[in-house]
């Protein structure tokens, strides 16, 4: 027997003792379970960070968002347009220092493709209070398919440092009952 600071002499490639071998096998099996869970969740689970991913020029993304706001704006709150897109549509959200633009009004149980991109730095999309988080990177369009399952008043926190006004960057999402979005007005 020797310790970890002594040089082992001769051949040390020997079979492991029974309890050690048992643990290695158990740990290996657990690692395979850990691995299998991720592909399984892609098949069976409802929450995956896949999305439609593409590169985008920030100016183009801004233009798309302005068009989107023009098409579906239903009101205004604290200087932000409130936009109610119809179920099934593409929704655009700008992250920039230090705003989430615009305010979104979505319908419960309707599916949307939510495109988010940044016009300047990295930002962090964090939906309060359900704690859903995505990284928003300038030059990349993250198009996530989302289906809200609860009615309510949600906030978007920025959780990636984006300069000294980072804590001011708070956006809003409302989820209303099906048919109450007013998106077809």
């Amino acid at each position: 027997m020797h310790s970890g600071v002594e040089s082992p002499k001769g051949v040390w490639w020997k079979p492991a003792e029974a309890s050690e071998r048992l643990w290695v096998i158990v740990a290996f099996v657990w690692c395979m379970v850990l691995f299998a869970m991720m592909p399984l969740w892609h098949l069976k689970g409802g929450q995956n960070p896949s999305g439609i991913r593409s590169k985008v020029d920030p100016a183009d993304f801004e233009a798309r968002t302005m068009q989107f706001v023009q098409d579906y704006q239903v009101g205004e709150e604290n200087g932000f347009p409130v936009v109610a897109p119809p179920p099934g549509s593409h929704v655009y959200l700008i992250a920039r220092m230090w705003q989430w633009y615009p305010v979104l009004r979505l319908e419960k149980d309707a599916e949307y493709t939510l495109h988010i991109s940044s016009l300047d730095l990295n930002h962090g999309f964090s939906l309060f209070p359900i704690n859903v988080n995505f990284q928003i990177v300038p030059g990349y369009d993250y198009g996530l398919t989302v289906t809200p399952t609860d009615v309510g008043d949600f906030r978007i926190i920025c959780n990636e440092f984006c300069g000294v006004g980072h804590h001011l960057m708070l956006g809003k999402v409302e989820v209303v009952e099906p048919g109450a979005g007013g998106g077809n007005e």
Binding site: V24, S50, Q135
Partner: peptide, 30 residues
Amino acid sequence: VDPGFGPAWKVWNTSYAMYLAVLASMIHGF
């Protein structure tokens, strides 16, 4: 949860090729 990488890349890399580095730590933990 970045927009730059697809699911297959994420699953393979985040698991250190099927959690073999986690296995290493679990072995040392014993």
